[in-house]
Amino acid sequence: METVFSTVSHTTYRSLYLNVFRNHLLEYSLHPVGNYVVQHFMRNLEDSVLKEQVVGELVNTIEDILAVGHFGVVDALTAVTIGLSEIYQKKVVNSLLKAFHLQESSKFKYTVPCVLRLLTFEMYSSEDGSTETTTYFGASILMNAFKLQQNAVEPLIQSLLTMEPDEILALCKDPHGSFVMEAFLTSRIDLPRKKKIYKRVKNQLARLAMDKYGSRVLEAIWASADIAFKEFIADSLLGEEQQISSNMYGKIVMKKCNIDFYKRKKTAWLEKQEANQKKQELFKDILEETPDSSDSKLVQNKRKRAETPLADEIDKLFTSKRKTRNSAVSQRSTSQNPKIKEEDLALREELSSVDPFALDMKLTIKNIKKKNKKLKREKPSKKFIMS
């Protein structure tokens, strides 16, 4: 089934949903094996109508699915929501908050830590809750969430912005948390919100640059920052150039930020950054194409392919080629031998409806027999007679 999802047409995919999955998604999601099938089914969805139906069927069951430990289903569900309207996105985010017992606005600040560790508010608030390790699926769910519209993920944004500088630093240096921070910094969330994160890490830039995971977050900050903060980053890194350059990850950061060029020609470096920023703004509309529009194009293209099945296309192709070949053979034979016998024409008409290759073979054999008879009647040349 998992292989079928990536190969079938749009029409067949819809039939699978109507005949197999509709009204059974929760049942399969709770099954120890069936939940993997549901995950692949959702990850291969392209039709926005089907996405809305799937989200509508599972949105209120997230807590039940998390309770049995099938986190991949929730991850796939949040990924499906990316291309939908804000109404569906808000429903999924609210259902997530409810599943982790964070519905009240006073608990929003715990959203990112709880989801990242896949712990409810009560479990996280216990003595050992905050020391629990982060999880892959928790990070993936948050990464998908930060691809939604800003209004839909307001509780998650508030959770990040209320963290202390030390907590932000720990999140940036965490194997899973660093991906969450990258997703936030590269999202479509407005720049003033991101600047609040910049301020919390501005005194820790050297530590980030020399960390395996923190260096990736610093690169994301660099990519999303304005020229003023990029200049601040360059000054901070240049202040600890020797220490950072001796670090394996620090070298990469120094090269990507072009600190050596900044050190030698600051004015030219600033002009280059301004030119790059203008290019980004110029192509902003193209780079930030909405998921809805790209999804609709995929669906339309797939729908067009589905309207003409592949088997029919192949049959039409061979039929047209067969007709073309038959006419070509007929014209060639007639032009080469205007006095073609009536029996050859009858044979051609009989075989043309079956196979053009059989026609060629039959006529070729007949011509060879005629040539052999002609050769037998001719006397051999003296030149080849043995003495």
Rank of each mutant, 00 (worst) to 15 (best):
A152L: 03
H176A: 07
D64G: 01
A206F: 01
H31A: 14
T81Q: 08
K230F: 03
V115N: 07
P165V: 11
T12L: 11
M210E: 14
F5H: 08
M123P: 01
A139T: 07
I197T: 03
K199T: 06
A99N: 07
C257S: 04
R193N: 14
E127I: 10
R14M: 08
V217K: 10
E343V: 06
T134N: 15
L310G: 02
W269Y: 14
T111N: 09
S140H: 10
E127R: 13
L191I: 12
V299W: 12
G34R: 05
V73K: 03
K91T: 00
L102S: 13
S130C: 12
N203L: 12
L363P: 01
R188M: 12
I227T: 04
F232Y: 12
V49A: 05
Q243V: 15
N247V: 03
S236Y: 00
N19Y: 10
E63Q: 15
L282I: 02
M248I: 14
V38S: 09
A183E: 04
K297F: 07
S9R: 04
R117I: 02
I87D: 13
N258L: 09
A206P: 00
K272P: 01
P192R: 07
K304D: 15
A234D: 00
F21D: 04
I62W: 03
N60V: 07
V68I: 11
L359E: 12
K199L: 04
R322F: 00
V80F: 05
E274W: 03
A228D: 06
T133D: 14
I365V: 10
P175W: 09
C257E: 00
Q280M: 12
P192N: 08
I197Y: 01
K265S: 12
Q158V: 13
F108S: 10
S294R: 14
